[in-house]
Structures are given as C-alpha cells and as structure tokens.
Design a binder for these strands. Sequence first.
DNA 1: CGCGAACCATACTAAACGGTTTAGTTGACA
DNA 2: TGTCAACTAAACCGTTTAGTATGGTTCGCG
Lengths: 223, 223
Amino acid sequence: MRAVNVSERVPMLPNSSSSMPPMRERSEKARAVLEGAFQVFMAQGYAAASMDRIAATAGVSKSTLYSNFQDKEGLFLALMQEMTFASRQEAFALLSQADLQAPPQQVLRQIAVCMLDSFEQNQPLLTLMRLVIGESDRFPEVAKTFVTDITKPMLDQLTLYLSSQTQLQLPDPVIAARIFAGSLVHYLIIQKLLHGDDVLPLERDRMIDGLIGMITAQQSPAP
Amino acid sequence: MRAVNVSERVPMLPNSSSSMPPMRERSEKARAVLEGAFQVFMAQGYAAASMDRIAATAGVSKSTLYSNFQDKEGLFLALMQEMTFASRQEAFALLSQADLQAPPQQVLRQIAVCMLDSFEQNQPLLTLMRLVIGESDRFPEVAKTFVTDITKPMLDQLTLYLSSQTQLQLPDPVIAARIFAGSLVHYLIIQKLLHGDDVLPLERDRMIDGLIGMITAQQSPAP
DNA sequence: CGCGAACCATACTAAACGGTTTAGTTGACA
DNA sequence: TGTCAACTAAACCGTTTAGTATGGTTCGCG
C-alpha cells in the first residue's frame, strides 16, 4: 500500500450504506486499471479481452495490474461490482426526479423518459446490460448483483408509486411495474442492442404513449 | 461433396420459402460439426470456444471442420443461421396452436403459455437469446437475423390477432403486442437468464394473469 | 482393380494468452 | 543519505489458440 495523503480525494460519501463493496478507497493506479478494464471488457467481452491490452489501455504495466487485482477474473468481478454500484443511483433516482403531485399519466411519462434516457444516452448502462446477460452463465453472481442492485430497486419504486395511485385501480401493482419496466427494457434490447431499428422501427414516444395508455386505462371506460 | 443417396433423408420441406439459408443439404459430417459447434459455442460463447474442442465434441477431425467451413467465424455464422431458422417455426406456430374462436382471455393465455414453454423447456432458445445479445456487438448481422426471423414474426402475429379482436378496443395493437411479448421476454430474462428467481421471485401464472388482465381491461369498467 | 474423394490422427507453425519474474527507476520519509 | 514500497519495461514460462500440412485409411464407382 502506498502512503496516501489525506488531501488527495475524499469519497465524501462513506459508502451509502457501508455494505460490501470497497469503493473509492482504491489507489490511483487501481482506478486507472479499472478504467482500462472497463474499456476493453466492454468492447471485447470477458474471454476476448487480454490483460496485455488492458494494461496498455490503462497506461500501466502488467505488474501493477496484478499487484492490484488477483487475476483476470478478480479484475472482471471488481469492475462489474464497481459499474453496478455506480448505476445504482440512476435506478434509485427514478422517482425523485418526478413531480409526484402531477397526474399519474404525467408522472409515468417522466419515469419512462428518465428510464430510456438513462439507457440510451448512458451507453455504459446498455453495454453493462449486454455484458451481464452475455456472461450470466459464467458469472451468475454478477447477474444476481445486477438484479439485486438495479432491477429490484427500480421495480420496487415503481410498485410503490403505482400502489399509491389508488385511482388507477390496478389489481396487481407488482405486475403492473413489471409490465411497465419490462416493456421499456425489451424495447431497448430490441431497438438498441439487437439493432432492430432497421427492421422493426418504432418511435419511442409511440411506445411510451401506448404503454401509459394501457396502464391508466384500467378503470376508465373512455368518455 | 459426397455422393448422396436419394433415400438418405429428404428435408420434405424445400426450405419454406426457398430463401437464403442452405438448410439440410449439408453432408452428414457437416451436420456433426454443427452439432458440436452448437454445444461448445452455447456453453462457452464465441471467444472462449476453441476449434479443437468443437472438433473433439463433434467426433470429427479438425481437417473435416475446416473442409466444411471457412473458419471459426464462418462456422459460428452458419450455426447461428441454422439455429435461428430452426426456431422460426416455434415463433410462427404461436397462433396456429390456439383456438382462435375462444374468448381473447383464453387465446392470450394459450399464447403466453406457449411462449414461455418455448423458452423455458427449450433451453436452446434461451441460450440462443443470451448468445445473440452477448455477441450483438461483434456480430450485428446475427442480431438482425434474430429480430427478423423470430421477434418480428412473433410480434406480427400478435398484432394481427389483437387487431382482429375489435371488442378489446385497443388503441394501438402494435404497441399492445410489444407490451405483451416484451413483458414476457423480460420476465424470462430476469428470472431465467439473470437467475432472478432467488432475489425477485414471481410465479409465472401471476405474471400471465396480470398481463392478460391489463390488456383486456382496456374497455371493461369491471362489473 | 484402381481412381479419387472424403475422412482420420497427428504434428506442425506462428502468434497470443495468463501469469511470473527480473532488473531498474522513482519519490516519500527518517 | 539510506530505506522501502510502488512503479516501470521487458523478458520469460508453459499453455493454448487458429489454421495448415502430411500421410494413411476407408469407400463408392467405373
């Protein structure tokens, strides 16, 4: 361990809930390694990525790489933990950005737009999803962490909000939340990950409108 | 090419629409190679799979492998084409197995059960989906083929049926089909691919019931 | 019988892989 | 000034990779 100056960079948040992941108290080099690992792993996948390329991309020697992480698998796991944790706040901020006093149609639209923006603009999140799915067989813990830290909080928030809107008369808010999030995520997978925009074009606003219309149409017989 | 006896195995369907994929007119060895490639690629992914292991699994020499396929990428593309084509009929048979005269709730339940069964029992289809998503960056054509040959036909059929059920008064059947299929596929991804059954348990019947209830509740004010 | 095609096992090449080791450099601290 | 930990580039190890080459065996067909 290098002696670390107190003035270097204080995390300022002690870990959100002081749980498992040893977050930002990594050495400067270790963070550089993770940055390089991010680029290479995301672009090439786990098996195709080489430690040499990661070291080169990180601007770091291979020795440093192995002094900060046990091996290739350890580096990959650390990166995935880091990325999943970094994306947690986006999942948690879904409702906090919406004006909850507005009518449900408006709130749901804000949430949907926020979700699609998180995935569309933030390419890392989309790439992370592809990697998590693609490697879910060899790294089941990574997949579970993703579900626990990102999918579940998102669904829980949605369920909570939908439950609170009693005038929607949703018979099963848990399922409604699944339908809402699932339809949007599936839309993203088809259009963005699988390049379906060419063969199955579908404008984002039409998807959002239709989805909200279906969820809010549970009780209203249409005037 | 080996001289092939007419009595060997006739495809019996000349290619469904005589399109691109050169189907079953492969030599016996080539089919063995594809079978081995299927096992190894599905278990290890593209980069981690080795041609030696594929040859061994297929019970075939490496020479045979390279005499039937140009290189690793060519073998992978051929396999993906073959698998996607083989899964087409499952996607096309969605409506043909349902009793279209029954009330929509019943038909939609049959379709949903049929879909989930296709993916749950038929592990290959689920594995194919993971592979297609995982390699969608390095093999975009594979992803596009998947969408064109599996996703699009499925959605088209659903849209057609939903449009025909005018009493459902769906404002946008295209979107309704997306919601229906998307919710189910997302359910499969979370529960089966990402091993979410532990952390986010959700029984399949509850999902189906809720989904059908939401789609068929467009106009009925509940008695 | 003999031709030729398809197959087999084996061994090879050149390169890349994960991981280790070596020798040498830097900079903070006592 | 001397020490020590962290770093560097580079070589190295044994293994594995994709792909090719060789030589021998089987088998249908004329």
